[in-house]
Design a protein around this nucleic acid. Structure first.
Length: 298
DNA sequence: TAAGATAAGAGGGACAT
DNA sequence: ATGTCAGTCTTATCTTA
């Protein structure tokens, strides 16, 4: 444990000294146990979780082993009496109580630590395989920590939540990764990731940039090499359909794909349903269904 | 060969019990 | 909490132009 004792006085009890716990990222008063600062920034974790591997191996034992029996819980009973069965005096009681608080806190942090470490290892692996930037990873880590803080991990696996966090980060930052893409590099099924993703949205009140079919056309058009002229036509179709309210509740991806397909036909740009289906990630059947509904807006 | 049609099934939202 | 229902999308297979 990396503790550094400062010369500061605790602003709460007026005594001290204040201790900075670099390992836990906390600043505490050694006298009253008050946590004066516990905000761990992502950079703290970045340094610890992602870059400290070699440092740790040089030191010797891995953290989990090194820390395994460090807690004081096994040494401090809950009875407020000494070894002879005599009750503690008040002064002693207070002291013991303080130690217990510290003890609980350090145990709690160890659990969180292990959890984050495992989660971020998996996160980094997936980010590597998906060719995503550090910014997305950072965002995913932030979401994950928030989920952990809100107790969303209870009854769920670390992998599920970290994977869903990654997906959420992708959505938030406009990265073009589908649930399918992410499922492929994780060890999870698409539906499980989707379930957790919805959970995150609901519980953490995440606001995703709403996906507009018109926005999506550019991605699909790009992928399927559809001309700008045709894309504009598709956008017009979507506009009209949108105004009529005929497309509410439909997957924006399928709308964009079908509108592009329809526009291709109108512009005599020969693109098969298969090509557009591949580019958009929806099936040909779905394109056909939307296509039928969209035709009257052409 | 591309497009269309049909059927079965999955998964989730809404709503009631 | 659990069940049901309507609506959406996917997968698979067959038919049509």
């Amino acid at each position: 444990m990396e503790l550094s004792i400062t010369k500061q006085r605790c602003p709460i009890c007026g005594r001290g000294p204040v201790i900075m716990d670099a390992n836990e990222g906390e600043v505490l008063c050694s006298n009253c146990g008050s946590v004066l600062k516990d905000s761990l920034t992502y950079d703290d974790f970045e340094q610890r979780v992602f870059s400290s591997d070699d440092k740790e191996s040089r030191v010797g034992l891995p953290t989990s082993l090194a820390m395994h029996d460090r807690g004081l819980a096994t040494m401090i009973g809950s009875d407020n009496e000494d070894a002879l069965g005599k009750p503690f005096e008040l002064k002693m009681m207070k002291k013991i109580e303080r130690i217990r608080i510290w003890d609980r806190r350090s145990q709690l942090h160890e659990n969180i630590d292990r959890n984050l470490k495992q989660a971020f290892t998996e996160l980094r692996r997936m980010v590597d395989r998906l060719n995503l930037s550090g910014i997305v990873m950072e965002r995913a880590a932030y979401i994950y920590r928030k989920a952990l803080k809100y107790g969303l991990l209870k009854g769920r696996s670390i992998n599920e939540i970290i994977t869903a966090s990654l997906y959420a980060a992708c959505r938030e930052l406009g990265m073009n990764r589908t649930l399918k893409d992410i499922a492929k590099v994780s060890f999870l099924k698409r539906k499980d990731i989707a379930r957790c993703y919805r959970l995150l949205l609901k519980e953490l009140d995440l606001r995703m940039p709403l996906s507009d079919p018109i926005e999506i056309t550019s991605k699909i058009a790009n992928e399927a090499q559809i001309s700008e002229k045709t894309r504009r036509r598709a956008i017009e179709i979507i506009r009209r359909a949108k105004d009529s309210g005929a497309i509410t509740g439909k997957d924006p991806n399928s709308i964009a794909a079908a509108a592009l397909y329809l526009a291709c036909k109108l512009e005599n740009e020969s693109k098969t349903q298969e090509v557009i289906a591949k580019a958009s990630g929806v099936t040909e059947v779905t394109i056909r269904n939307r296509y039928k509904a969209l035709k009257k807006f052409a």
